[in-house]
Design a protein around this nucleic acid. Structure first.
Lengths: 348, 348
DNA sequence: CTGAAATCCTGTAACGTTCCAATCTTGTGA
DNA sequence: TCACAAGATTGGAACGTTACAGGATTTCAG
């Protein structure tokens, strides 16, 4: 079959199929959707016509008349971040399994572009929104709420809406306690301010509690923007290295996520601090990289696929009205994976 | 403003806005789209009504009548693979910058789900498809071609359509030559069969040429499915370790991508082979992880963001008919990043 | 035969936009 | 005061589908 190269032939519509098969468009529609009440003979003829014309239903038109789409918006903090990448992949798979198509939008943790992204999703009349990251910006939230579109927050807290997540506070406590048990007395908390969300704050709470429970303190908060050699330590700008060399130096660090933990490990390598010799590091998430022998990061593992599965199940049930009533809160368990980035404190 | 909690109020339409502002729907449409020919006074009234009702245009309806969407389908091999994750992020950003929304679909390198994904994208009447991975399956290709929808292949070859990519053959040659220059005489080629595409094959060609040019050979082909201790070496199933311990052992490996290279490095670490002491490894892609001090992988770097930018520019130009004529082929340069996974061959 | 039920099929009215030709204002110069 | 142009506004016809009420046709028991 030769076609004129530039003549962009229009898509055949249900009407073309109908006239080609000698039936009405309603019948074609019924065949396409596999509804009963069409004779085998007609069904065959219609299918043949569909084949011959290369007809493909126009989802747009369908969705317009049905007043609902099967698209799920997915808000991701940073697609290039391994944790989000894994989550995004799982979410996409589970969404597809339930008949939804995922539409991602990437927000550099920036509530400005988060808002723009949600706006775009709403214009596309997505059936619901899955937040894998949520800045907590209240306007976005209200926008969404106001339009009565289901939203689920997976692994990122929110005051409102269905939440599927690990118990971040417990995780924070476990990670910190692991360091305490190893004899560390001065333990810092590391996080990346750009990406901080409610989950991080809960992890911080867990960290504080664990410290308190062990009679240690006060908490030390290191906020670090990755490429920096300096960091904001408890609010004052300090060369990062001092945190681990001064008289009151920290020997343990609980990081609110693996990316931060690995970045710190990298920093330590560069300035000749030993991990775990000089610093023991505990991360959070258990990204695939953390399991490499050369990284060997002790971390708090989240069951990513399970979170994605539950998240999709929750929002799908909301959309399909199988789930009604007040927001639900589903928590799944976290586990500590001990690797070689932590060790008992060397006695001085 | 109190709303009944379960009554999912319908979205206001352009007609609601029109009657609320006391104008016709056409005028509202003109205001929304920012067309000229609307008096300032009316414009203001309409904007107010939009505000008050919380109107948001329905992209579906717009696209239906306009016969085109502003959605770009993006076919990704594996979102969790760091190379694809970075590319996906860049692609999304550049697409958004040109007014397009990206719709990803993940195909586990499996041409079955690639086909299904493309099918879904076509049903959504995407304006074009960006392939970040392409199995080369001819039916998919023909499906797409047949519907006259623009497609661009970014960093993955195809016999047909616009291609934006690095010169994989040159890359393969450079990577292999780096090992040759370091004195290695027996150099293997490592790849992951599940994800092999035309780019990989071009890299293989480059590898073979470099070997030939140096008077070395024959090529050794290791196909490896990640968690395995065994591998298909030149077609025969062998314990992977033998490749690096036998009498004719390989001392250098050129891997067709960083993920494979890092997996091999991990394997080497586990079985006590030293990198680069016993094996020198060169990867391809320069994923972020490769730059970590603990990984320090020598690799061929692709300018990912540039590829994404050019890819989006190409397909956008096709869609907007600024680019006509036969398929284009844009090549961008590749650079060797020497790190610590390669070293001169130890003299035995 | 007849009437009713079952089966198969169809036509019309949405859905929420954009496009376009036509109409209604207004302002201006003669 | 009028004719005319320019500007502002409008109504109706698409776009490709689904929903649904009803129209044919067939089947079958009485």
């Amino acid at each position: 079959m030769i076609e004129s190269p530039s003549a962009t032939r229009r898509h055949p519509t249900i009407l073309d199929v109908a006239s080609h098969a000698g039936v009405s468009k309603s019948t074609v529609s019924n065949v396409v959707r596999g509804l009963p009440g069409v004779s085998e003979a007609t069904r065959g003829r219609v299918r043949l016509a569909i084949q011959e014309l290369g007809y493909r239903p126009n989802v747009l038109a369908r969705q317009l008349v049905q007043q609902r789409t099967s698209i799920l918006g997915v808000v991701v903090g940073d697609l290039a971040n391994p944790f989000f990448a894994e989550m995004a992949k799982s979410v996409e798979r589970h969404a597809a399994a339930r008949g939804y198509t995922a539409m991602f939008c990437n927000t550099e943790g920036d509530s400005q572009s988060e808002l723009a992204g949600v706006e775009t999703l709403l214009e596309h009349r997505v059936a619901g929104i899955v937040f894998l990251a949520f800045s907590g910006d209240s306007r976005t939230m209200r926008e969404t709420l106001q339009h009565q579109i289901p939203a689920v927050f997976v692994s990122c807290g929110a005051e409102w809406g269905d939440v599927v997540s690990v118990d971040d506070e417990v995780g924070g406590r476990m990670g910190t306690a692991h360091l305490v048990d190893a004899g560390h007395r001065r333990i810092a908390y590391l996080f990346i301010p750009e990406l901080e969300d409610q989950s991080d704050r809960a992890r911080w709470d867990g960290y504080c509690e664990a410290l308190k429970a062990a009679g240690l303190g006060p908490p030390v908060r290191i906020s670090w923007s990755p490429p920096a050699e300096h960091a904001l330590v408890d609010g004052v700008d300090r060369p990062l290295i001092e945190v681990f060399t001064g008289p009151d130096r920290a020997t343990g660090v609980f990081a609110s996520n693996d990316v931060a933990a690995i970045a710190l490990q990298e920093f330590a390598d560069r300035v000749d601090l030993r991990v775990p010799g000089d610093i023991s590091i505990v991360g959070f998430d258990d990204v695939p990289m953390a399991g490499l022998a050369r990284i060997a990061l002790t971390t708090i593992a989240q069951p990513r696929d399970e979170l994605a599965r539950l998240g999709i199940a929750t929002i799908a049930d909301r959309i399909e009205r199988k789930l009604k009533g007040p927001p639900t809160r589903t928590l799944v368990d976290v586990t500590l994976v001990a690797r070689r980035s932590t060790a008992p404190l060397r006695q001085a």
